[in-house]
């Protein structure tokens, strides 16, 4: 076994011995990190789902250009070709007045009697514009609309921008709240880990003195404490994921019903594997940073 492997083994053994030596303190620290990460993770789940919905709305995003009456077929074709050249436009479909009426009739179904009273077709012809994927954002949409609006022959531009903008603002708000709250909670967890490790350093000051006397380096003294912090952080994060998943399953029916009611669509998802890995690594990093802060200046040869 190489010297490095021996030392790593020694660090792990010392770290585990340290955790076993103060089980209550370790348990409190792990539980605190878990609670903190459950709260942060809840926000991450909500933000990821809202983001997913925003992307889905983007895929369905169309712009309808209602045209003035009286345009000839050639003018309609020309206008469609003109719109197709606008940057950000993927495809343009020309819907004539007749086609619009047919679609309306198909939409209202059995109640076609309503239309029989009309003397002439009141529906305008329109151009249904599909945007390039990169432009399916409130900002991208605005740029495209600016280029189209005002073209001769276009009576009205209709799109769901206001709704999309409001929703995007909500996503940004939730994300900002998650970030702010996450930072506060992470700071609290960091202080608790740092305090736990500081207590461990005091409790084992005799050991540290002896290690230092026999020639233990700063790394040899500090590495087991950093590992302890990482183990506490990683264990807290793993526990948080278990709690979070249990809560997700428990609250899923109500969450789905709410989404159906609000947006007519409900496919709430738990954290992605990458998201879960990030939470575990984040927990371990939190533990390591907390330990590092506790150890700063503690090694005196």
């Amino acid at each position: 076994m190489s010297r490095l492997a021996s030392q790593l083994r020694s660090f792990v053994r010392t770290a585990l011995r340290g955790l076993r030596a103060s089980p209550l303190t370790t348990a409190v620290s792990v539980a605190t990190i878990a609670i903190t990460l459950v709260l942060i993770g809840s926000f991450v789940v909500v933000v990821e789902n809202m983001q997913g919905m925003l992307e889905r709305f983007g895929e369905d995003l169309h712009v309808s250009l209602y045209l003035e009456d009286g345009l000839s077929d050639a003018e309609l074709e020309g206008l469609a070709e003109r719109v197709e050249t606008v940057e950000g436009v993927d495809a343009v479909e020309l819907v004539s007045k007749e086609q619009a009426l047919q679609r309306f009739e198909a939409g209202v179904g059995a109640r076609t009697g309503l239309l029989e009273a009309l003397e002439e077709n009141p529906l305008p012809a329109s151009l249904e514009v599909t945007l390039l994927a990169a432009r399916r954002t409130p900002e991208g949409l605005a740029v495209v609309i600016e280029s189209i609006d005002g073209l001769p022959g276009i009576a009205e531009v209709a799109y769901g921008q206001q709704w999309v903008e409001t929703y995007a603002r909500a996503v940004a708000l939730v994300r900002g709240a998650a970030f702010g709250l996450g930072a506060v909670l992470a700071l609290a967890a960091f202080l608790i880990v740092a305090n736990t490790i500081r207590l461990a350093v005091y409790a084992r000051s005799d050991e540290l003195e002896i290690v230092s006397l026999v020639g233990g380096s700063r790394t040899f003294v500090n590495a087991p404490f950093l590992l302890e912090g990482m183990i506490q952080g990683g264990a807290g994060a793993a526990l948080a994921l278990v709690i979070l998943y249990a809560l997700f399953r428990l609250l899923l029916p109500g969450f789905e019903a709410g989404l159906e009611l609000l947006v007519g669509y409900a496919e709430p998802a738990f954290l992605s594997p990458g998201g879960m890995l990030r939470i575990v690594l984040g927990g371990a990093a939190l533990g390591a940073v907390g330990s590092a802060a506790a150890l700063a200046g503690s090694w005196r040869p």
Binding site: R3, S10, D206, I210, V211, V214, G215, S217, F220
Partner: peptide
């Protein structure tokens, strides 16, 4: 200056552990 939670063997071995001697 011995560590009371460690065995005699571990107390002595600590001086070798710090230089990475294999167990």
């Amino acid at each position: 200056k011995l560590l009371h939670r460690r065995t005699i063997e571990e107390n002595v071995a600590i001086a070798l552990e710090v230089v990475g001697t294999s167990p």
